[in-house]
């Protein structure tokens, strides 16, 4: 589905670098994310894609460059201003990150209870609505430890959209799930972005998932942006990194195992 991207960027990443202990994890990355699109960031483990996501949520600050969300440079905001902006964010964590001590219902209700003055009855109705959106009505009284990983992900998704956010961040939404549940999660992401007009930023290395949900894809390798384009452009890309990544080839420019293979050959 082709959309009109002529409108202004909702998230704009400009020349961002991030160093940890002198090691450059993100190296001069720039891209724009437009309102309403599903933007997928893909790359190998350790490529810096999760760091990129945490930079965008304001969990960590960039060493250089700026990240502008809804016209505000988030690294220059004060805590309460960042919190105000974060009320329009939702985030689905890799391991769901539900609060263990609260029931499913209380987990989804938490942002509503903290940030709105709604009556308890209305909150209960909203929670029911959000849970039925992710197909989990009737599980209100369970604790996170009593439900499966796929269900926890869906509860996490319900919590992420509890406050009707404009932007939802997904950190590896399908990793660790079986293909069927993974497909369900992908469909939910797609549905939410189309029905609720949410801008979605997805970090993943699941190629199936990328081609199911993405409007645009960015490939990251060793902290550098390799290419940004539509799924079709990525599929037809002649870039050797992208070719190796989407086909899952062990040999190519991505030399993840080179040193290990070298050691192995010495023994043989």
């Amino acid at each position: 589905m082709q959309r009109d991207y002529s409108q202004e960027a909702i998230i704009s990443v400009r020349g961002v670098s991030k160093e940890f202990d002198g090691r450059k994890i993100i190296d001069n990355v720039s891209f724009d994310i437009y309102c309403g699109e599903t933007f997928v960031i893909m790359g190998c483990s350790g490529s810096g894609k999760s760091t990129l996501l945490r930079l965008m949520t304001g969990a960590i600050k960039p060493t250089e460059g700026s990240i502008i969300i809804k016209g505000k440079d988030i690294s220059k905001l004060r805590t309460y201003q960042l919190d105000e902006l974060r009320k329009s964010f939702g985030m689905l964590f890799q391991y769901s990150a539900l609060l263990d001590s609260l029931t499913v219902e209380d987990n989804v209700a938490l942002p509503l209870r903290e940030h709105t003055k709604l009556d308890e009855e209305i909150i209960k109705i909203i929670v029911k609505m959000k849970l039925s959106l992710v197909g989990l009505r009737g599980f209100e009284k369970y604790y996170p430890s009593q439900i499966s990983g796929g269900m926890r992900k869906r509860v996490g998704l319900a919590r992420a959209i509890a406050l009707d956010p404009d932007i939802v961040f997904y950190d590896e939404p399908t990793s660790g799930l079986d293909p069927v549940v993974g497909g369900v999660i992908d469909k939910l992401i797609k549905d939410l972005s189309e029905k609720l007009l949410i801008t979605s930023i997805v970090v993943t290395h699941d190629m199936q998932s990328v081609f199911r949900i993405a409007d645009r894809v960015a490939m990251v390798h060793k902290g550098k942006l390799i290419q940004v384009g539509t799924p079709q452009e990525i599929k037809n890309s002649e870039n050797p990194y992208i070719k190796q990544f989407i086909n899952g080839l062990p040999q190519g420019p991505i030399d993840f195992f080179k040193e290990d293979i070298g050691i192995l050959e010495e023994f043989i």
Partner: peptide
């Protein structure tokens, strides 16, 4: 032990992203 487990399972970060201050909460 409780707060430490919450920290390593990203629950503290989840609170921060929901704009809930972990010190207050």
């Amino acid at each position: 032990a409780e707060l430490g487990t919450m920290k390593v399972t990203e629950q503290i970060e989840a609170l921060e992203i929901m704009a809930i201050n972990p010190v207050r909460f």
